[in-house]
Design a protein around this nucleic acid. Sequence first.
RNA 1: UCCCCAGUAGCUCAGUUGGCAGAGCAAUUGGCUGUUAACCAAUGGGUCCGCGGUUCAAGUCCGUGCUGGGGAGCCA
Length: 459
Amino acid sequence: MKRTKINLLLKLETTPGEVLVKGWVRTKRDSKKFSFMEINDGSCLKNIQVIANDDLENYPDIQTITTGTSVSVTGKLSASPGKGQKWEIQADQIEIINIAPESYPLQKKRHTDEFLRTIAHLRPRTNKYGAAFRLRSEMAFAIHKFYREKGFRYLTTPLITGSDCEGAGEMFRVTSLDPKMIEQQGKMDFKTDFFGRESSLTVSGQLSAEMFALALGDVYTFGPTFRAENSNTSRHAAEFWMLEPEMAFCDLKQNMDNAEELVKTLVRHAMDECPEDMALFSNFVDKSLPKRMDILLNTEFARVSYTQAIDILKHSKKTFDFKVDYGTDLQSEHERYLAEQYFKKPVFLTDYPKQIKPFYMRMNEDGKTVAAVDLLVPRIGELIGGSQREERLEVLEKRMKEMGLPMENYWWYLDSRKFGSVPHSGFGMGFERFLMMLTGISNIRDVIPFPRTPGSIDF
RNA sequence: UCCCCAGUAGCUCAGUUGGCAGAGCAAUUGGCUGUUAACCAAUGGGUCCGCGGUUCAAGUCCGUGCUGGGGAGCCA
């Protein structure tokens, strides 16, 4: 008999009679002559209820089943008299695949997120994390769908890189040098290393993606990135996934249009395709989720320049821990104020002073600011960072010299400005931060299957 | 790196002028009406994070270390 997943079973309008399901027991309730078992196979949030009568051959074994035990069940799919459920299975046969003993840490009741992080290998079996990672999968698909439909090409950029996307954070080194040799020599000689020079895990695929945008037009890269920042917050991880579209013949405004459309499309997709999982987050994680989704879908994101933002902050009459001055980078408290108290919705901040942004961002006509953009979202912080790139060779070179960058390392990058360069733009969006926004989950570690953070690399 | 909070049964938590530690869930056993963390009863379960100190006596007070969580900086 062919196995049917529970999500498909629950969609049936009429019973096919005999069915086969396999999954994990969520709970068992015994009476004198029979038992109820809730089985979940991960395909959806809901369980299927199985009734086992004491005339089953292995009923004494069935009575030893505990939460977590894996089973295979054949039986008749019947309309259920129980409330809140359409179908149940009257079991003909229950095979115990593997008993979960007393040491199985998950119970029927809820557990704290802190505890579940210590058993990250089992937490997908809970309702909350089952929902979180199903949704993660669906959103990854939705990103590909969005860009596919817009004619973008998916580009897989290197994870091991010799290039430094300047200003994008600390890098993890990649080396095959023997640690013992390093210790003996007291230093690392990169000429003898695998790549013949220093190499690292990538902090961004952007520079590579620009090369392809200037050939294929519109591309996106979507994959893991790595930052060796000692950031101990609920918003940071050392390994995280980033979406980075790059668009030829595109200015900053069109860049923002794409970003805003992307976010709205993804939110709509989640609500349309994952209503049960989204309802769980709304009911049990974040009561304000419906209202937040409404704002994301039905309001235009605010767009203000850095200079305007400084003005707003200075006139706010709030006392901040960090002084608000033109030319300085905004701090968390400033960004929070703008997104959460002033605009109360996502806000694009543009046109930052050139000295606080990297070399590749396009210089504005005023000579003081660059065509940069950050999208600040309430509770999340910076969800998206991007810019229009500098397409003028002389300006780019001048900027790199000002910043004291080694030009010879970027020869291939500068080549792209010599031969048919065009205005182009792009941005990076943290996938996990997007998921936090979508679910209301407040810690990035809980939207990553096996998170990597400072001091922590279990599983 | 800095600031704050915490660590007691497998899990979630009580334990206050210091006096040899409890509850719920889980587990085991028994019972039971189609239940939804079923319900009822019984039983077992503890280096009170580690190491020092104060005291006749420390889960409780003091010091130090470790681990976890929240915040700041760094930053997608």
